[in-house]
Amino acid sequence: MKMAARTKARHESLGLSLEDVVQMYRVMLQTRMIGERMMQLNRMGKAMFVGVADGHEAAEVGSAWCIRKGVDWCVPYYRDVGVALVLGQTAKDQFLGVFAKATDPNSGGRQIVNQFSDVKAKMLSGSVHIATQFPHAVGLALAAKIRKQDHIVVTYGGEGATSPGDFHEAMNFAAVHELPVVFVIENNQYAISTPVKLQMAVANVADRAAAYGMPGVIADGTDVLDVYEKTKQACDRARGGDGPTLVEVKCYRYRPHSSDDDDSRYRSKDELQAWLQKDPIDKAAAYLLQQAVAASRLEDMRQEIAADIEAAITAAENDPDPDPATLTRYVYGEDAE
């Protein structure tokens, strides 16, 4: 049957322009390419330790696209390079962190890499201890409610972070007090080497939400638009005063947990290959081509990102190291109100 008017494209029905999707793709690609160079720098002995987001790009970018920059608080975890980039960090910021420079915007070289902390941008990463960020996020949301501010809080963790008590205490409190928090769980199937089936007896992380009396939804972490749609619904719910939501984003980590990990010891190449067939960046590119974005534009974009990354690495390497004379700065504040 012929349609009188053309069917709305997926992105249009979600309220996104095609240019929005192009920009989402750009950040996804940037995230992947930054990760590649971070791993290389580690293997070259120039970066002490890194953890990268390969495979998580749609999960991170699709969800972070729902955050109102400078209004909502975001509490990412250590894999969320894509979230930090969406919220305004640059490639250079990432390498300043990798090299622990004085100009590292997160901490001036004090905190380990990938702790994205920019208070002006309302972004905080508290810890590499798993799940400690969730009570912080709930506290930020509680503060919004107490002070009648309209920000919501979007917090992130891996599925491994849904095992410790902090997760449960945070989910419970957020639900009891109907706080404006969205818990985005990037389920990449492994807590370092431990597969999901040895982490939980339920089939989905989202199933855990029922125990707290909040909705739990599942998004396809290989599809940036699906992640955007599900996270947006959760954010709208929080903004409407209806309380928290757990959004499980199913994805796969293409690289080892960190530069110190060897994933060949716990998972098969076949499994990795199967997930590589669903690469979120390839999927996003295919969507854009199908929407008549020129292939040459995507290729130009890749080259621009690559050039920007190389310039960022050089610039970051040339920035000053932290001055040992400043070492004890920020242990205590002397600026009592």
Partner: peptide, 23 residues
């Protein structure tokens, strides 16, 4: 003046988050 469930780590963590916003 907020009553909390029994969840010491969660309570202190929430306070950290709230304090980071200026409370």
């Amino acid at each position: 003046v907020k009553n909390t469930p029994i969840s010491e780590n969660g309570i202190v963590g929430m306070a950290v988050g709230a304090a980071l916003t200026g409370l």
